[in-house]
């Protein structure tokens, strides 16, 4: 088997391993945490300059 083929196979194996890691982690997080908690993010604008500049406050 040529070096080129070995490099190709190595790239496939690495890509598959990384993809598998991500999928497993997604499933693990889904099982471990409550869906409401995972989807609790809102636009966090606590640093928006309007907090101090808003004339209505």
């Amino acid at each position: 088997m040529s070096v080129a083929r070995l490099v190709e196979i190595a790239a496939w194996v690495l890509a598959a391993a990384i993809a598998l890691w991500m999928v497993v982690d997604v499933i693990r997080v889904d099982h471990k945490y409550d869906e409401e908690y995972l989807s609790s993010a809102v636009e966090d604008l606590s640093d928006a300059p309007n907090l101090e500049g808003d004339p209505t406050r």
Partner: peptide, 24 residues
Amino acid sequence: GSTTQISAYPFAVLAIVGLAWLNY
């Protein structure tokens, strides 16, 4: 100097998956 034609598939896929992992 490689005389064998290397396929572009695995590297295109590896690039996307690897960078997605970094982003993840």
